[in-house]
Design a binder for these strands. Structure first.
Lengths: 190, 190
DNA sequence: AGTGGGTGAGAACGTGCGTTCTCTGCGTAA
DNA sequence: TTACGCAGAGAACGCACGTTCTCACCCACT
């Protein structure tokens, strides 16, 4: 029964890590907290992730896949290439309203450990580049000029940061209407 | 000679604190580092700031005044109320290009200690609200609709975050041109 | 039933750091 | 010149936490 339990232990650990790291910050969570939160013994924890940084890395990687997956699922349920660009901000608004929302995990992680941990800094860059690439795809699919994509990115990043710090979901709608203006202005034909 | 030295000690401490906290993050800097960097003895350090959190607070307060002062000085040297809004992004670009630029101290501080330290969380909110209020002033002075101000704020915040994480100054120009579109679209008369 | 390997609980270890304490030396006043 | 007090250097203390170790338990196999 050992191999099966390994997968169970891994996912319990990542669940606990994600809940705790995101809610409190990485440095504020001790390995004992992970152990208590997951029910997985310290011995097994260290067998699966030999150091805290590797658990942090696994947490950020899994969250990246899930975060971008949820975004893409929401966007792709919308019809019309231009509407899809705006749907990004609708999804951000839903996310901001979730209980426990506390800003972007990568922005927070970068602020906390960008200097100390090369891994965290790199994962934050990769996540933002992947998000930027996704927005480029949306803009290209809409036949709009590529210069629009980074502008939409900045609106989204600004919305995440501002919603996190001020604790309000208003930035989602504000960014959405700004993006709508940019999309309309950028449109070559109506 | 005591009273004079107090001011000297205070400013040396804040200079060291600002350099170290901003460059490495708050938790990564020990009180011994502050002592070494400032040349002020631990005894005096604790006489002036009885706990690390108070030094952090003083650092963020002084930086807030200086940061907004530098921004305002740059903006007010520009003629034309609409050009002033765009000048915000020119100044951001200059800031991003400064050696040692590492993102926004309040965004980083919020990511690092927003959960742990009520003081840091409050100062981050206050700083962002003050910045938002300044942008509102600029928008109002240009006779543009007030809904423009939070949109410009999001572009600026997104530019700071993205420039910090990706280590490029490109977001300043991208945000500037997005803001130019928003300003033009919002203008009631030409 | 008896034995061995592996597992969980948690004690233990080492380190880093915020904060305080000690001691030494120097400048000042009589 | 001598006694006093303040300041600086840095040792010391207490705690938190990442990581490792110990030990007792349980289950499989004979």
């Amino acid at each position: 029964m050992a191999p099966l339990d390994i997968d169970v232990a891994r996912s319990r650990l990542l669940d606990a890590a994600e809940g705790l790291f995101y809610a409190r910050g990485i440095q504020a969570v001790g390995m004992d907290d992970i152990r208590t939160g997951s029910g997985v013994s310290l011995k097994r924890l260290y067998a699966l992730y030999p150091a805290k940084e590797q658990l942090v890395e696994a947490y950020l990687r899994r969250r990246d896949v899930r975060w971008r997956g949820r975004l893409a699922a929401h966007v792709e349920a919308v019809d019309g290439p231009r509407e899809r660009i705006l749907a990004v901000f609708d999804w951000l608004g839903e996310w901001f309203r979730e209980p426990g929302f506390r800003g972007c995990a990568w922005i927070n992680g970068y602020g906390e450990l960008g200097t100390t941990s090369e891994v965290v800094a790199r994962l934050a860059r990769e996540h933002k580049l992947a998000f930027a690439a996704y927005l480029e795809d949306l803009v290209r699919a809409a036949g709009l000029p590529e210069t629009l994509a980074p502008q939409v990115l900045l609106l989204a990043e600004g919305a995440m940061v501002t919603a996190g710090i001020l604790g309000t979901d208003a930035p989602a709608a504000q960014a959405r209407s700004a993006a709508a203006v940019l999309v309309s202005s950028a449109a070559p034909g109506a």
